[in-house]
Nucleic acid binder design. Structure first.
Length: 868
RNA sequence: GCGAGGGUGGCGGAACUGGCAGACGCGCCAGACUUAGGAUCUGGUGGGCAACCAUGGGGGUUCGAUUCCCCCCUCUCGCACCA
């Protein structure tokens, strides 16, 4: 290489510290409404301050930072904030286990993690930092709660709730996965409790409809939300219980099959069961109910069970045809959905069919397929498709789809039913029997009942003088100073609510607080919110597809209806990044091993050869984790970021590979040397400018073309596709080409056009690298003689003229096989290309003595000939 | 079972609307510089001696298919008695 340079080693540690402090000094990432350019709000899901950042964070925040830095360089007015989802169970557990107060534990973790994020070189506007555990923030949770309470959107009810016996708290339905607690995987119990609920169901339709207006979201997430909301249209029908005043209310999506009802199924926990069961059936029904309850606990999520039931002795009357149908309790009917009772139409519902076969109940066909008549005895399964109505009174002969409306109308006329819509979505239970959360601002008074804390008294601050035993109820219950309060209404002795809010409440509006973190009169300033919102690009893990993203959407709509802002949806575009995975390592003796325990392929404890396991999501339990701190320590933040972006496209899972990190480090070293080793040669050289021009050698012309092609590709890959991996590989190719080009011969004058092209290319490499590896880019930018820092510089724009080629390579296929390649001037006519193709020596060999049957020309790309 | 998304070299992954399959990186091989190099630089690297064969398997459409259509296998994720 170039002789006479003083070798300057690539030393990420020094460079990175230096630029981080310069950025801080310059306030490089401070966002302001008054700044120039179109607003762009980039947001990554804020972390829970568990102590240390992990590779998932590194990936998440690297992706966000690429976008934020790129868009800033593109001239956008970017808001890129960060904060802490800092209420939650781990802090309380730490208090119980180590005697540290949750507030202190959380504060320390935030300090540590903030340092880590800064060391990553992430460009956040820290002036907007929010921490949900601070009274400044959670005061507004309480404020919002009171507003919702006033509107009847927050209400209290006694109901069966999901209780996690390990977390000692209630869980929302969304927080129960396969019957297990989403956090600790303990089997969830049912428990009757008085709880606060938010009426998310009031927004069920809007939440559902808007999923069709979010083209920037992954279809997968939208489908999951739609399924979760689970809207079904149908009818509610009342069936009188024969000989009593009771009526069973059912929900059905198939009112057209009403004439085919041959029995009735109630959930085993249906409240009517006790009333209608006859004396002689009582013992059986109770035993059955107990069995179902026990099975649910053991078998939840286990899939299809055998359909079982027991006769109650009661009969109900079909309101349309007066038929008497036996009432059963059945294990497949869920109390939580619809009305907990199902009319059974075995001919047209598979579950009812199986049940009827088991218990010898009649099957009555009311819909025949278009050109077929069912023989009831020969049916092997239910017929759930469309057809023609039979055995259905005045509806006979109609298409069932047409009869549907008529039957609902008839029900309404008779006053025995009505059209109805049911959702799977339940109201959101937000009460948590925990200390480390936002207090619910309610006071209980003997005389006045549940009284809201006056707005002036907000925030209801969490008391610090509590003890953490891990036993019994929430520490707040034991805090007399907190509990003892006077009724805001009548002044008599009252008791404060001791439940705190689900932490998902905190994260349902934090993106709004970022817009005006200092707002004092309201949770956020309307003008600020309407300027910055909605978030243009939200980046986070797929695990929040339903819970957080649904709650945040709900809050956005609820706050809109409180008049706080005027938009409908919080997140225009959503990017769900894949998980960070790594191969597990196992010792037959000692189980899973951390990477450092498996050094040299042997178990650190017993020396047994390590067995390689599957590639799985990084987790402490599998010990296949890599500590970002150690990677940053060894290679620097730029390498760490670069690798996490290069190894896979963002939405896919990423396989962590130590060798791959090494490769990214090597590449940055290569860029470093490319600039440094040629520094004295390019000193004072002006980047090539095509206007005054200068004659370029064909090599220089090629390099210039590659440079501008790279600018075009990298821009496109970041902007349109988020394919950072291919963007980075394009930069690598340019660097490889520049190593070969190398015009820095001794004595090349600064006016040398080749040298000026080289300078232009070096500038491009460095600028293009900025979003991925910002520190090294800034350092090299400075070394190249720029006086304006890169973070204030503009993204390079490609020169259309530079992309032009003298000739293009056209592939010649003969009978579908590549037989030759020819260079033709771009834009050649088909006739000209045909002549050149047929004149090519190799092509001649393959076409000799053959006749040309077909000739296809794809301009500037390919010729395809068929010969025989 | 239903829904969604995948299956491409030894590995991670490229290939925009059908147009040279394997970019880029890792690993591996060779060479250069070196006392040495796990540093760096250069070159090579799907299989096969070849014709040819290769994008999970089998059909189809097409001049041409990783890409479009049909059938099957397989993996991952989500939902799972939703009436």
């Amino acid at each position: 290489m170039y002789v006479g340079e003083i070798e300057v080693r690539y030393d990420p540690k020094t460079i990175e510290a230096r630029w981080q402090s310069i950025w801080e000094r310059d306030g490089a990432f401070k966002a302001s409404r008054d700044a120039q350019g179109a607003k762009y709000y980039v947001l990554e899901m804020f972390p829970y301050p568990s102590g240390k950042i992990h590779m998932g964070h590194v990936r998440n925040y690297s992706i966000g930072d690429v976008l934020a830095r790129f868009l800033t360089m593109r001239g956008c007015n970017v808001l890129h904030p960060m904060g802490w989802d800092s209420f939650g169970l781990p802090a309380e557990n730490a208090a119980i286990q180590h005697g540290i107060h949750p507030a202190n534990w959380t504060r320390e973790n935030i300090t540590n993690m903030k340092t880590q994020l800064k060391r990553m070189g992430l460009g956040y506007d820290w002036d907007r930092e929010v921490a949900t555990c601070l009274p400044d923030y959670y005061k507004w949770n309480q404020w919002i709660f009171l507003k919702l309470f006033e509107k009847g959107m927050a209400y209290k009810k006694r109901s069966s709730v999901n209780w996690c016996p390990s977390c000692l708290t209630v869980l929302a339905n969304e927080q129960v996965e396969d019957g297990l607690c989403w956090r600790c995987s303990t089997i969830v119990d049912a428990k009757e409790l008085e709880q606060w609920f938010l009426k998310i169901t009031a927004y069920a339709d809007e939440l559902l409809d808007c999923t069709y207006k979010l083209p920037g979201w992954p279809e997968k997430v939208l489908v999951m939300q739609r399924n979760w909301i689970g809207r079904s249209e149908g009818a509610e029908v009342s069936f009188k219980v024969d000989g009593t005043d009771e009526a069973i209310k059912i929900f059905t999506t198939r009112p057209d099959t009403l004439y085919g009802v041959t029995f009735m199924s109630l959930a085993a926990s249906h409240p009517l069961l006790a009333k209608i069961t006859t004396a002689e059936r009582k013992a059986d029904v109770e035993a059955f109910a107990a069995k179902v309850k026990a099975d649910r606990r053991v078998n939840r999520g286990a899939g299809e069970e055998i359909k079982e039931g027991v006769f109650t002795g009661a009969y109900c009357i079909n309101p349309l045809n007066g038929d008497r149908a036996p009432v059963y309790a059945a294990n497949f009917v869920l109390m939580e959905y619809g009305t907990g009772a199902v009319m059974a139409v075995p001919a047209h519902d598979q579950r009812d069919f199986e049940f009827a076969k088991t218990y010898g109940l009649p099957v009555r066909v009311v819909i025949n397929p278009p050109s077929q008549t069912f023989d009831t005895d020969a049916m092997e399964c239910a017929y759930a498709d469309e057809g023609v109505m039979v055995n259905s009174g005045r509806f006979n002969g109609m298409k069932n789809t047409d009869a549907m409306k008529g039957i609902v109308k008839l029900l309404e006329e008779k006053g025995v039913g009505k059209g109805s819509i049911t959702y799977k979505l339940r109201d959101w239970g937000i009460s948590r029997q925990r200390y480390w959360g936002c207090p619910i601002p309610i006071v209980y008074c003997q005389a006045c009942g549940a009284v809201p804390v006056p707005y002036n008294d907000l925030p209801v601050v969490l008391p610090e003088d509590v003890s953490f035993t891990g036993k019994g109820l929430s520490p707040l219950v034991e805090s007399p100073g907190f509990i003892g309060v006077k009724c805001p209404k009548c002044g008599s002795k009252a008791r404060r609510e001791t439940d705190t809010m689900d932490t998902f409440v905190d994260s349902s509006w934090y993106f709004l607080r970022y817009c005006s973190p200092m707002a004092t009169g309201l949770p956020f300033d309307k003008k600020d919110a309407e300027y910055w919102m909605p978030v243009d690009q939200y980046v986070g893990g797929i695990e929040h597809a339903v819970m957080h993203l649904l709650y945040a959407r709900f809050f956005t709509k609820a706050l809109r209806d409180l008049g706080l802002h005027g938009f409908d949806e919080p997140f225009t575009n959503l990017l769900t990044q894949g998980m960070v995975c790594k191969e597990t390592q196992k010792c037959p003796e000692h189980g899973f091993l951390f990477p450092e325990e498996a050094a040299g392929g042997k178990c650190g404890r017993c020396g047994h050869p390590v067995e390689a396991g599957a590639v799985e999501k990084m987790s402490k339990s599998k010990k296949n984790v890599v500590d970002p701190d150690k990677i940053i320590e060894k290679y620097g933040a730029d390498t760490t970021r670069l690798f996490s972006l290069f190894a896979a496209p963002p939405e896919k899972d990423l396989d962590w590979s130590a060798d791959g990190v090494e490769g990214s480090y090597r590449f940055l070293g290569r860029v470093w040397r490319l600039v440094n080793e040629n520094l004295s040669a390019v000193k004072g050289v002006k980047a090539y400018d095509p206007r005054p021009g200068g004659v370029l050698s064909s090599d220089a012309q090629d390099i210039r073309r590659i440079t501008h092609e790279t600018i075009k590709k990298v821009t496109h890959d970041i902007e349109e596709r988020f394919h950072f991996n291919t963007a980075i590989s394009a930069i690598m190719e340019l660097v490889n080409a520049l190593y070969i080009f190398n015009p820095c011969r001794d004595g090349a004058s600064p006016e040398d056009a080749g040298l000026r092209v080289f300078m232009e290319s070096l500038n491009a490499v460095v600028a293009l690298l900025t979003p991925f590896a910002p520190h090294i880019a800034e350092e090299l930018w400075e070394k190249l003689g720029h006086t304006t820092a890169l973070h204030k510089a503009r993204w390079p724009v490609y020169d259309e003229a530079a992309l032009k080629r003298d000739s293009v390579l056209v592939v010649v296929q003969i009978n579908g096989k590549v037989r030759g390649k020819i260079n033709v001037p771009p834009g050649s006519t088909e006739d000209a290309v045909r002549g050149m193709a047929l004149g090519d020596e190799k092509v001649k060999e393959w076409t000799r003595d053959k006749t040309l049957k077909k000739f296809v020309y794809v301009p500037n790309k390919l010729v395809s000939m068929v010969v025989s």
